[in-house]
Amino acid sequence: MSDTKKSFLIINRKAPYGSSAARDALDVALTISVFEQPLSLLFMDDAVLQLLPAHNAAAIGQKNLSANLSMLEMYDIDQLYVCQRALEQRGIRPDDIELNIILLDQSGIAALIKKQDQVLSF
């Protein structure tokens, strides 16, 4: 494995089901973590809906994305940033979310993107 590390940011913008975007982002995140690169996840727009607890996706014949997201800390993926405005627009309180998240305003998001080596958007 290379000595040089690159920082990665994965931007999530889509709801958990209805397209493969959320699952694709998760797959890429887990893969990056296996290579032990510094990794952050940013949830904005409809992707904050991924963070609602207690999905029961068996009702639509899918796997629970909320269960998978709670696994991220087992992969040492603990930099989970969330767009505060996206939460407010959807009436979601930070306390509703059972993951350890870091809230960001618009300038915080810009600063987060600016300091990354690579940014992937889903």
């Binding site: 887990l30 973590s33 296996v34 796997k63 629970n64 269960a67 998978n68 709670s70 696994m71 087992m74 992969y75 040492d76």
Partner: peptide
Amino acid sequence: FYQQFEMSPAMRPLIK
């Protein structure tokens, strides 16, 4: 692990 997270772990989370 699978029951809780609905995925099989890679090596590092398995060790954890």
